[in-house]
Amino acid sequence: NITYDSTPEDVKTWLQSKGFNPVTVNSLGVLNGAQLFSLNKDELRTVCPEGARVYSQIT
């Protein structure tokens, strides 16, 4: 699982392990844990089509 202390590499690995598509992995894999957790559902949806699914995994 990812935490606020996760590195971008951790986030990328976590996204891949959850089966998100490469677009999602590449879009969000540049963020660290704190940055990812700071995004709300609408912001995640704006960044990638699977944003709502990512949001449900981190809340």
Results as ranks from 00 to 15, higher is better:
13 T>L: 12
28 L>Y: 00
10 D>M: 10
17 S>T: 09
41 K>F: 14
38 S>W: 02
43 E>K: 11
57 Q>F: 09
34 A>S: 14
55 Y>F: 10
8 P>S: 14
27 S>K: 12
26 N>H: 06
32 N>W: 05
5 D>G: 09
50 E>V: 00
15 L>D: 00
14 W>F: 09
41 K>L: 13
31 L>T: 03
14 W>N: 04
28 L>R: 01
35 Q>W: 00
5 D>N: 12
23 V>G: 08
35 Q>F: 00
18 K>R: 14
26 N>G: 13
21 N>C: 11
57 Q>M: 15
29 G>T: 01
49 P>L: 07
44 L>Q: 01
32 N>T: 10
37 F>V: 07
1 N>S: 14
42 D>G: 10
1 N>K: 13
27 S>D: 02
57 Q>R: 09
37 F>C: 10
31 L>K: 06
31 L>A: 03
51 G>E: 01
8 P>H: 06
3 T>M: 08
57 Q>K: 11
38 S>Y: 00
36 L>T: 02
41 K>W: 10
33 G>C: 00
48 C>R: 03
55 Y>M: 08
4 Y>F: 14
31 L>E: 02
29 G>Q: 04
33 G>S: 02
3 T>G: 10
48 C>A: 07
58 I>N: 04
34 A>P: 09
59 T>S: 15
13 T>R: 10
31 L>D: 01
37 F>I: 09
38 S>V: 04
9 E>F: 07
31 L>S: 02
13 T>I: 09
2 I>K: 01
41 K>E: 14
29 G>M: 02
20 F>S: 04
50 E>T: 00
53 R>E: 13
55 Y>P: 03
54 V>D: 03
1 N>A: 09
15 L>K: 02
16 Q>R: 11
17 S>I: 05
22 P>C: 11
4 Y>S: 11
53 R>W: 09
54 V>G: 03
38 S>H: 07
25 V>G: 03
14 W>L: 03
33 G>Y: 00
13 T>N: 06
15 L>H: 00
14 W>H: 05
42 D>V: 08
44 L>V: 10
16 Q>N: 06
46 T>N: 15
1 N>I: 11
13 T>P: 02
6 S>L: 00
1 N>G: 07
38 S>P: 08
34 A>C: 08
53 R>T: 09
7 T>Y: 05
32 N>C: 07
35 Q>N: 06
10 D>L: 06
17 S>A: 14
5 D>S: 12
28 L>M: 03
39 L>D: 00
39 L>I: 05
10 D>E: 15
22 P>F: 09
18 K>F: 13
32 N>L: 00
3 T>R: 09
27 S>F: 07
47 V>I: 15
25 V>F: 04
48 C>H: 06
8 P>L: 02
29 G>Y: 06
53 R>S: 13
35 Q>D: 11
8 P>N: 09
16 Q>G: 08
10 D>F: 03
57 Q>G: 07
54 V>N: 02
37 F>A: 08
11 V>W: 01
50 E>N: 02
25 V>K: 04
20 F>R: 01
55 Y>C: 07
38 S>A: 14
44 L>Y: 08
8 P>C: 10
1 N>L: 04
3 T>N: 15
42 D>T: 08
16 Q>P: 01
34 A>V: 08
33 G>Q: 00
32 N>Y: 00
52 A>Y: 10
15 L>I: 02
58 I>H: 01
26 N>A: 14
45 R>C: 15
44 L>I: 11
52 A>K: 11
38 S>D: 09
42 D>R: 11
7 T>M: 05
11 V>H: 00
48 C>M: 02
43 E>L: 04
15 L>G: 01
44 L>T: 03
43 E>C: 05
19 G>C: 06
30 V>M: 09
44 L>E: 03
57 Q>E: 15
45 R>E: 15
25 V>T: 08
11 V>N: 00
50 E>P: 00
54 V>R: 02
7 T>G: 09
19 G>K: 09
26 N>Q: 11
19 G>E: 07
25 V>I: 13
27 S>C: 13
1 N>W: 03
34 A>H: 08
57 Q>W: 10
16 Q>M: 08
15 L>F: 01
37 F>Y: 09
10 D>N: 09
23 V>S: 07
14 W>A: 04
6 S>F: 01
1 N>V: 06
29 G>W: 00
15 L>Y: 01
3 T>F: 12
9 E>A: 13
45 R>G: 15
35 Q>V: 04
1 N>Y: 09
53 R>M: 13
54 V>H: 01
12 K>W: 06
42 D>Q: 13
48 C>L: 06
36 L>R: 02
22 P>H: 12
16 Q>Y: 08
13 T>V: 10
37 F>L: 15
35 Q>H: 06
7 T>H: 09
10 D>A: 13
22 P>R: 13
56 S>R: 14
45 R>F: 10
57 Q>T: 12
38 S>K: 15
28 L>Q: 03
31 L>C: 06
4 Y>C: 15
32 N>K: 06
26 N>T: 12
42 D>C: 08
48 C>D: 06
56 S>L: 06
28 L>P: 01
23 V>N: 10
6 S>W: 04
27 S>V: 11
37 F>M: 15
56 S>W: 08
58 I>F: 04
8 P>I: 13
23 V>W: 08
24 T>A: 03
54 V>P: 03
53 R>H: 11
36 L>P: 02
2 I>C: 03
56 S>E: 14
42 D>I: 15
8 P>D: 05
43 E>A: 13
29 G>L: 00
19 G>D: 04
57 Q>L: 13
18 K>G: 09
33 G>L: 00
7 T>F: 04
39 L>W: 04
14 W>K: 04
28 L>E: 01
22 P>M: 11
30 V>Y: 07
22 P>L: 11
18 K>Y: 09
26 N>W: 05
52 A>S: 14
51 G>T: 04
23 V>L: 14
26 N>K: 13
55 Y>G: 08
49 P>Q: 10
24 T>R: 01
41 K>H: 14
32 N>I: 00
59 T>Q: 09
35 Q>Y: 00
57 Q>Y: 07
40 N>S: 07
55 Y>A: 09
25 V>E: 04
5 D>E: 15
19 G>L: 05
46 T>Y: 07
12 K>S: 11
51 G>W: 05
45 R>A: 14
51 G>A: 07
51 G>V: 03
7 T>E: 12
30 V>W: 11
41 K>D: 10
18 K>V: 09
56 S>Y: 11
30 V>G: 14
29 G>C: 07
31 L>R: 05
9 E>C: 08
9 E>T: 12
10 D>V: 06
2 I>F: 03
34 A>R: 14
12 K>I: 05
33 G>R: 01
7 T>K: 10
35 Q>S: 13
1 N>R: 05
31 L>V: 02
54 V>E: 05
23 V>E: 15
25 V>L: 09
5 D>A: 14
17 S>G: 12
51 G>S: 06
22 P>I: 08
27 S>M: 13
1 N>F: 06
4 Y>W: 12
8 P>R: 10
29 G>N: 01
39 L>F: 11
21 N>E: 09
30 V>H: 15
7 T>I: 06
14 W>S: 03
55 Y>E: 11
59 T>G: 02
36 L>Y: 00
39 L>E: 04
11 V>S: 02
35 Q>E: 13
6 S>K: 01
51 G>M: 05
13 T>Q: 14
53 R>Q: 11
45 R>K: 15
5 D>W: 06
36 L>W: 00
33 G>F: 01
33 G>H: 02
56 S>V: 06
44 L>S: 03
10 D>W: 01
9 E>K: 09
38 S>M: 13
3 T>S: 12
57 Q>A: 15
3 T>H: 08
41 K>I: 15
21 N>V: 05
38 S>R: 13
41 K>T: 05
44 L>R: 03
25 V>A: 06
